[in-house]
Design a protein around this nucleic acid. Sequence first.
DNA 1: AGCTGATATTAAATCGAACCAATACACTCG
DNA 2: CGAGTGTATTGGTTCGATTTAATATCAGCT
Lengths: 365, 365
Amino acid sequence: MTKISSNRRRVTLMDVARASGFSPSTVSLVLNEAPLARYIPEKTKQKILEAADRLGYRPDIFARSLRSQRSQMIGVLVIDLADPFCTLILQGVERKLLPTTYLPIVMDAHNQPAQLERYVEMMIQRRVEGLITVANWLLFDITVLEDIDDRQIPTLVVGRDLESPTVNSVLVDNEAGGYAAMEHLYQLGHREVAFVRGPRRMADSRMRWKGVRRFATEVSLRLNSALIRDLPGTMDSSSSFDGGLKVANELIQSGEKFTAILAFDDLTAYGAIRALSEAGRRVPDDCSVIGFDDVPPSALSTPGLTTIQQPMREMGEYAADYILKHLAHRLEDGSQPYGDSHLMKPTLIARGSTAPITKPVRKRK
Amino acid sequence: MTKISSNRRRVTLMDVARASGFSPSTVSLVLNEAPLARYIPEKTKQKILEAADRLGYRPDIFARSLRSQRSQMIGVLVIDLADPFCTLILQGVERKLLPTTYLPIVMDAHNQPAQLERYVEMMIQRRVEGLITVANWLLFDITVLEDIDDRQIPTLVVGRDLESPTVNSVLVDNEAGGYAAMEHLYQLGHREVAFVRGPRRMADSRMRWKGVRRFATEVSLRLNSALIRDLPGTMDSSSSFDGGLKVANELIQSGEKFTAILAFDDLTAYGAIRALSEAGRRVPDDCSVIGFDDVPPSALSTPGLTTIQQPMREMGEYAADYILKHLAHRLEDGSQPYGDSHLMKPTLIARGSTAPITKPVRKRK
DNA sequence: AGCTGATATTAAATCGAACCAATACACTCG
DNA sequence: CGAGTGTATTGGTTCGATTTAATATCAGCT
């Protein structure tokens, strides 16, 4: 029965030593099940364990860290906590770390690159043993991570391909996702599809588009270039709603006919839905809309949003596993397979925002 | 120009001492601007600072913590990170802590009381200097916080009134919120309002209802008891969508006439909207819906959700301030004004899900 | 008796910074 | 001239656990 001591002073290893009649060294060996404890008789061990338990001994984490030079902490740097994308990945990381002795330290850069840099500094100062960066949006300078690399801290980037030879990453197979989204619309009968692509510079957007085009080519579908638009370049996740709204409005204004919109991500899709609604076009009756990500609200809105689901929790778990693996093998094998990026399969989630094209599109003005 | 050293070995206080020609003691005094440093001439200080900078000295946080018995960490225990309510509070906390030397340590209980308990243990073990608990939903056992109190760790609960004499809290003025929501619907002309209240045992729900009734009494409006329903008791935040869907369906099935729904929170409101939609009733044309919380998706859905906004970031900031204040005065004045709960003002956010009652309600079957 | 090797335990060094008590020197003043 | 005060610096201890090297005991063997 472990008892929580309510004494004012901390219970130290020395106290346990005194109480059990052995030296601090012996107590330490026993409590840590160190190799040297193999010759210590069971009877002694019992006495020590009993004493430690009775006094409610908890090793002082400061002293232990100082001596062992280990923090037992893994930094998780997130570009924006309010972005559900980040949150879900975080939950995956946490789930994997829970049964270990490692503690995730979460820092939120609030979409500001400067914060991110400062936080990397803080992470180093706090001596994190590994670093996971969730930065789907920010196009940040890779030099920030050089310090990290310098200190032999295993690092992984989630949700973005850094195209750096020194840092590994895990992300969704954007091309497969783009392909699946286009395929879904095509199978519902849509031939005139409008596209709201992500910012030009984003690798994510380029890969998704590549998938879309690959499918179009396979079925010999010609894409109308007047229906292809990009979100503006300087964006963070929270502004993609506004971007989607604006670009969809332009599409509607253009007068080009389309029966579906394939949006860069869920928030962009919601912006498009708002624009359609304001123009008097119903979703999905008058126009289907498909997103990308499957953030939690997508299941709750009416209509539910059809989207390409990124396995975010799984990506978080992969990240944590990656770090743990490297931490475990750090001593025997220091070399990492650098520049690797692991792709995970996306899944189409069909909800209410897409529908078969049955009747001819009503034109309203 | 601060240079990041890339040497294999850490730069220690001793190194700076050797490089500057002074003793470690002197170096320590200067770098910490300790009281005793007042007699040290500027010239010496400059030399030491220069040496420290040149070598890229960073104090070892383990050693410092051990000696000073301070972790410089503040624990933030969150009932569910995926809940936007928690996320926003977290951002408030972080914003306040950013300019300080304190680091927030976030732990996510994933809606499981058992986790919460385990995490409190971990927090104590990691020696957090303060604790903020965001637990709007969970009706957890207060005994968990007893250990905390025992150790003189300043603690604050956000989003729930614990009704405990030993722990303070900050939360929104739920009664004022309920009042404002009802007032809004009334002013739009709604007289037949349906209510989806929260679980009976939740203090939040009771207070909101009190506000609703107070307004109704003031304008002599009789509430139809057939239109008053409760969400089931055993719930977490993620299931309130399903709850809202189910209860709203029951209301629709009941055949009672109503022109608006006042929901316990935003997710419940979204559940209700789904139910209405499935029954062929449009929002807000056929029925207005109002929520409570103003979680981020509420602004993005179509129609946007009218709701009572909780000042979540501000509550987070208040919490951080509270802890910082107590930490600052810990030594001179250990006594806390226990059992206090600070109320913050909610704000009505009118969006597209509520509308004036103009035409008579179409009845569809 | 002397040696080996397994068993059992501990003294002492270490991690790096903080800080109290001590020292050394230069002054001023009665 | 010795006591007192302010200025400048440092030696040495402390925080609490880990770990290496060392010591002590005893059984078994030649």
